[in-house]
Design a protein around this nucleic acid. Structure first.
Length: 850
RNA sequence: GCAGAAGUGGCGGAACUGGUAGACGCGCUGGACUCAAAAUCCAGUGGCCUUUAAAGCCGUGAGGGUUCGAGUCCCUCCUUCUGUACCA
């Protein structure tokens, strides 16, 4: 294929852009700002994937377009470089993660530059840089030194925590504070992988299991972040952001709000009581037994001697199961009777207390009142163990319902639900719920309650390659958080990253880490050996880009205001795989910072957009094993970066999954060749056919429509149709031997955001000396985007019978007279009379005949 | 099961508030250029009927409905993708 000299052109302009710092972000306050953010990549050893350029090109186009529209554009790039894969790789190769990380980042930067992205590299961040993670640690300490004021619904300094009068002892006060901090230590069952020597997040399990690693449940001492305190705000504030519906839905589900009630149950022959959560307090009369989670704290207290062995055995069995196994056993429910009875507060009758692993310890109170008549799970369990099923709700239509056969779970009419103090019998479910809550509250044995599914965030990993937790412990069991002036707490420079073998991170083997004299207190100390999870660094990187070199604060307030007001990042582009975790964690950190006034917006990301996956040519997900992986380096070598960029935009709508096609990129490449030949000679000089001349009517129409459509499509992220329109332009103008110079110039400006290298070159060939990005995006004349002659459809009985070429805005009489004169139209009138005429100006005329 | 999104030629995909379905690209067919090929350029290209054309009929996952008119709006169903799942 005889191509324009894309390799030379692209190298040349990339060099010039680099040399002239052309993409350095301007902060000239007289211009409006636009903050575009890409989800920064994890710099893996494999280099850039073909999917990366999709989102990055989209944002690059917008960045260039907004720049040409006079905005100060902040469009930075960085690296999320802490992580287990790098650590594993380094263990195999026996190199240091810093070395591997720097090598990988250098490869990524080279590839990103090769694709011509206009990033301001002076703002590049790297989460593993101590100057960066100093502030990650600083933020962790902010969270650590906070408690959540439920009334004010915000974080407050831990020193402002009201301490109950009865607590006076210094140590007790510290313990009390620790219990309320937003970062706290807890013994929790975690997903432990022996081979990796670390815990894994629930969402990480699949990935590593697929690679053949084994993961087991095991209780361990872990750092947790109290994200659950922000459940309500994280849920409510979704209303403030312009995100894909599906992503918002996913977050809503993840947070999982349910409205119901807590009800207290007493235990027969025991002065203890317990609380259950239910969304259907109206069915309390139908609660025929109780189920506690096997882990429930009361289980050992209440189990009767003759049930002890069976209960202990059941608890042992379930403790070995992972969460996955427990939920996987969807088929049949198991459980054991404790021998104890609770009192149903509504009926006053004793009901048996069971334990079963279908009740989860970590949700609600870890205890339920089982209403087998009106809950499918309880129904199944009741059938298995022959427990009584009682009907307390009937379908509102009055139809019969066989409660033994199937639970009735919908709203209906309360039935047989009365005691000496109140009755809800005959009430519709919503009223019955309210009335029951009133009664519970009047007796002080229950209240309305909103429950969330969201769990606290497991915030420690037993790894070397992560941010150290800036906390030290002393021999007396006390601990001390580092002062701001002591940050960053750097990783010790070691070369042994093998797990300690004790369930601790490799840091536990580093003498200087676990056995040193704290200079501040003079006491013998050891640092926390856990490091932070990979999510930590990505929780706030968008703020660091704003002020990347500041060593006083993570981000200057004034600068934050300029770039983040009014609603945060203007456009955030990234994969849908981060729809929940990263986006939830980042929102959480942002809200803590917001509570302290460090950031000025309640939400970090105004508009979120997900680019779709690029599939292999065979329509399957690209993977090494399928051999359908496309490498961006190869594509750039064969067709050039501009072709790759344009092709990825032309493939289809940005959010869709789309298959790669080699002949498809050839088509786009052919288009760029046509563009080149339209303007330039083979010797890269201006083609003689480009001349100062008037545009034809048709050319004027196409030019102005193109400027209009390309601009509008960029704004709405419909890049595929913008490319189509530019193709239409080229098709129109190559028809003519004389190419009007002014049209060519405007076209090249439209092309520039998409294919910046060829556009720069053609712009220079057209005689310009300054970079094309310094020029404004062209304006169009609306009147020229409208044709003065249009085709109008003539229908008879709503079927097209003819088409008329008529002047724009022709009136009905005129159209009618022409239409009636049409031969084919007349044919369809034969033997019929016109009953009705529908005239839509500039569109159609429709005759209804009979 | 639940939630969200989507089903349009041989393929990727267009189609504004209901008003010419299939823009643009790929592929394919024919032609020009060439000794030949590549590249390039021109023309054609949803299906059926027809030698061709005109004319006509059928066509946006399936079936109903609203309307002069439905890819677009409403109802029912099917399929695919994505997330989630004993959350009381």
């Amino acid at each position: 294929m005889a191509s324009y000299p894309f390799t030379e052109i692209e190298k040349k302009w990339q060099q010039r852009w680099d040399d002239s710092d052309i993409y350095k972000t301007s902060e000239d306050k007289s211009h409006p700002k636009y903050y575009i953010l890409d989800m920064f990549p994890y710099p893996s050893g494999a280099g850039l994937h073909i999917g990366h350029p999709e989102g990055y090109t989209a944002t690059d186009i917008i960045g260039r377009y907004k720049t040409m529209r006079g905005f100060n554009v902040l469009h930075p790039m960085g690296f999320d470089a802490f992580g287990l894969p790098t650590e594993r790789y380094c263990m195999e190769k026996n190199i240091h993660p810093i070395e591997a990380t720097n090598t990988n980042i250098a490869v990524f930067v080279g590839q990103l530059k090769m694709l011509g992205f206009g990033y301001d590299w002076s703002r590049c961040v790297n989460t593993t840089d101590p100057e960066y993670f100093k502030w990650t640690q600083w933020m962790f300490l902010k969270i650590y030194n906070s408690w959540f004021d439920d009334e004010q619904q915000r974080a407050r300094p831990i020193d402002e925590l009201p301490i109950p009068d009865e607590i006076t002892d210094t140590k007790e006060i510290e313990d009390y504070k620790d219990k309320h901090r937003l970062a706290f230590i807890s013994m929790v069952p975690v997903n432990w992988c022996e081979a990796l020597g670390t815990v894994l997040a629930n969402e990480e399990i699949d990935e590593w299991c697929a690679k053949g690693y084994e993961v087991v449940r095991r209780p361990m001492r872990q750092w947790m972040l109290r994200i659950t305190k922000y459940s309500k705000r994280l849920l409510d504030d979704l209303a403030l952001v312009d995100w894909p519906i599906s992503t918002k839905e996913m977050q809503r589900h993840w947070i999982g709000e349910s409205i119901g009630a807590e009800i207290q149950f007493t235990i027969e022959g025991n002065d203890k009581s317990f609380i259950v959560f239910t969304t259907r307090p109206d069915t309390v009369f139908g609660a025929t037994y109780i189920v506690l989670a096997p882990e429930h704290e009361l289980v050992s207290d209440i189990t009767t001697p003759d049930q002890k062995n069976e209960v202990a055995e059941y608890i042992r069995e379930t403790s070995l199961k992972s969460d996955l196994e427990r939920t996987d056993l969807n088929k049949s429910k198991t459980g054991v009777f404790t021998g104890a009875f609770a009192v149903n507060p509504a009926t006053g009758k004793p009901i048996p207390i069971w334990i079963a692993d279908y009740v989860l310890a970590h949700y609600g109170t870890g205890a339920i009142m089982a209403v087998p008549g009106h809950d499918e799970r309880d129904h199944e369990f009741a059938l298995t163990y022959s427990l009584p099923i009682k009907k307390v709700v009937t379908p509102s239509g009055g139809s019969e319902w066989d409660i033994e056969n199937k639970a009735f779970t919908e709203d209906g009419i309360a039935f047989d639900s009365a005691n000496d103090e109140f009755s809800i019998t005959g009430m519709a479910t919503p009223d019955a719920i309210n009335r029951t809550i009133e009664w519970l509250e009047s007796k002080s044995i229950g209240c309305k309650k909103i429950q969330y599914k969201l769990r606290d965030w497991l915030f420690s990993r037993q790894r070397y390659w992560g941010e150290p937790v800036p906390i030290m412990y002393f021999e007396d069991g006390s601990k001390r958080a580092l002062d701001e002036s002591e940050l960053p707490l750097r990783l010790p420079d070691v070369l042994d990253f093998q797990p300690a073998g004790t369930g601790e991170s490799p840091l536990a083997k580093v003498e200087s880490w676990i056995n040193f004299i704290d200079p501040k207190t003079g006491k013998k100390a050891r640092y926390e050996t856990n490091t932070m999870p990979q999510w930590a660094g990505s929780c706030w990187y968008y703020l660091r880009y704003i002020d990347p070199k500041n060593d006083e604060i993570f981000c200057n307030k004034e600068k934050e205001k300029y770039w983040m007001q009014p609603d945060g990042v203007d456009l955030y582009m990234g994969g849908a795989e981060h729809a929940v975790l990263h986006l939830l964690y980042a929102r959480f950190w942002h809200k803590v910072l917001y509570d302290y006034g460090y950031v000025s917006t309640p939400e970090p990301f105004k508009k979120l957009y997900h680019q779709g996956l690029i599939m292999g040519e065979d329509g399957r997900k690209m993977s090494k094993s399928l051999g359908n992986v496309i490498n961006p380096d190869d594509v750039v070598a064969e067709f050039g970066a501009d072709s790759l960029r344009m092709y990825e935009m032309f493939l289809g709508p940005l959010p869709d999954a789309k298959p790669w096609s080699t002949s498809g990129i050839e088509g786009v490449h052919r288009f760029l060749n046509r563009v080149w030949r339209m303007l330039a000679t083979e010797a890269a000089t201006l083609s003689e056919s480009v001349v100062e001349c008037e545009l034809s009517k048709e050319q004027e129409y196409v030019l102005h429509s193109t400027i209009k459509k390309v601009g509008e499509d960029i704004e709405s992220l419909h890049f595929n149709t913008a490319v189509s329109q530019m193709m239409i332009f080229v098709n129109e103008f190559t028809k003519s031997d004389r190419k009007p110079r002014q049209a060519m110039e405007k076209f090249v400006l439209c092309l520039a955001p998409f294919a910046p290298h060829i556009a720069e070159e053609l712009w220079a060939i057209l005689g310009n000396t300054e970079s094309i990005i310094r020029h404004s995006f062209p304006d169009y004349d609306e009147s020229k985007t409208i044709k003065d002659e249009i085709e109008l459809v003539v229908q008879v009985m709503s079927k097209i019978r003819s088409k008329l070429i008529i002047p724009l805005d022709s009136n009905e009489e005129f159209v009618d007279s022409l239409a009636r004169a049409d031969e084919n139209v007349c044919k369809h009138f034969e033997g019929k009379t016109v009953r009705k005429v529908i005239f839509v100006p500039n569109k159609l005329i429709n005759y209804i005949v009979s």
